[in-house]
Simulated scan of single mutants.
Amino acid sequence: MRKSVIQELLSVESTELLSEIQIFDEIDSTNVEAIRQIRSGNSSNCLILAKAQSAGRGRRGRNWASPPEAGIYMSMVRQFTLPPNALQALSLVTALSVKSALEKMKVQGLKLKWPNDILFEKKKLAGILLELQQQEERCHVVFGIGLNIALPQEVGKSIGRPVTDIVSITGLKPDLNMTVAAIVNELCINLTKFEQSGFSSFTDSWNESDCYFHSDVVIQNGERSTIGKSLGVDSNGALLLQTATGKQLINGGEVFPSLRELPT
């Protein structure tokens, strides 16, 4: 990856938003580095990239496999004046942005899993970890994105769940600079749209892309499991679940396919 090439490929909106691009050969975690910089007084919007991570992080405390040249590991920092409780749907907006960017690069057949996984044939291609840092009246959001490009076979087998990468889907390794710029450009457009109109303008797009839409699922949240039929997301990004006792709004947890049918 080259900073000058990425900068040339960024849209006007992205260029105006981002004050700097940082690229590391290896780092513990781009999200951790972003948070370190925010806490040390760096309040700018920036993009942090790494060619490898020694301690990549995923949702729910999981590790994110980040070997050299095998993926894109990036964190974009953006300030918001909206209160934190108004930003809960940003993970879904980010997933939609990554999916859209990849589709424009001819990576087809992608689906989403609530709240923020990008899948191909129900194998995980990309994941997202958002972290908020509140400073006075401004909220910094760190948009962590991990995208598998060409995972070594032994790494894929060690992850313990179905995963895939761009090379396995398309047979070609994409230009990393173009891929980073495409994701950033799409994300910047959608974040502006989100600030102006909230998540309601994304609801239909999400439900059309949701691989478990109208399917029986299990929501695992800590020790609690809830079984129901996914009815898609509402205008705030919460998952609407039809359970045996009625409809429930789900705001957290992980989705799994249900192995048993609901009573009708």
Rank of each mutant, 00 (worst) to 15 (best):
I35N: 00
I35C: 01
R36E: 00
R39E: 03
G41Q: 04
G41F: 05
G41M: 05
S43G: 08
S43N: 09
N45P: 04
N45D: 11
N45Y: 04
C46K: 12
L47G: 02
K51A: 15
A52Y: 12
Q53Y: 08
Q53F: 10
S54N: 15
A55C: 05
A55K: 09
A55W: 02
R57F: 12
R57G: 14
G58K: 12
G58Y: 10
G58W: 10
G61K: 14
R62G: 10
N63H: 14
N63K: 15
A65K: 11
A65F: 10
P67K: 10
E69T: 13
E69N: 14
A70H: 08
A70V: 07
G71Y: 07
G71K: 09
M74K: 01
M74S: 01
S75E: 00
R78P: 11
Q79S: 11
Q79D: 11
P83R: 14
P84I: 07
P84L: 07
P84C: 06
N85T: 15
A86E: 15
L87M: 05
L87P: 05
Q88R: 09
A89L: 05
L90W: 03
S91M: 05
S91E: 04
S91I: 06
V93M: 07
V93I: 07
V93R: 07
L96K: 06
L96F: 08
S97G: 15
S97C: 15
S97K: 15
S97W: 14
K99G: 09
A101R: 02
L102N: 02
E103K: 01
E103N: 02
E103W: 01
K104R: 11
M105C: 06
K106Y: 01
V107M: 00
V107I: 03
V107A: 00
G109Q: 01
L110A: 00
K111N: 11
L112F: 03
K113M: 03
K113N: 02
W114R: 02
N116T: 08
K122G: 07
K123R: 13
K123S: 12
K124A: 13
K124G: 13
A126T: 09
L129T: 08
L129D: 09
L130W: 03
E131Q: 09
E131K: 08
L132V: 10
Q135Y: 05
E136D: 10
E137Y: 02
E137N: 07
C139R: 04
V141Q: 05
V141R: 02
F143Y: 11
G146W: 03
L147M: 04
L147F: 02
L147V: 06
N148D: 06
N148F: 04
I149A: 12
I149E: 10
I149D: 10
A150R: 15
A150C: 14
L151E: 06
Q153R: 12
Q153Y: 12
V155A: 13
V155C: 11
G156S: 13
K157S: 09
K157V: 07
S158M: 04
S158V: 06
S158D: 08
I159E: 09
G160Y: 03
R161C: 13
P162Q: 11
P162K: 11
I166M: 06
V167Q: 14
V167M: 12
S168C: 07
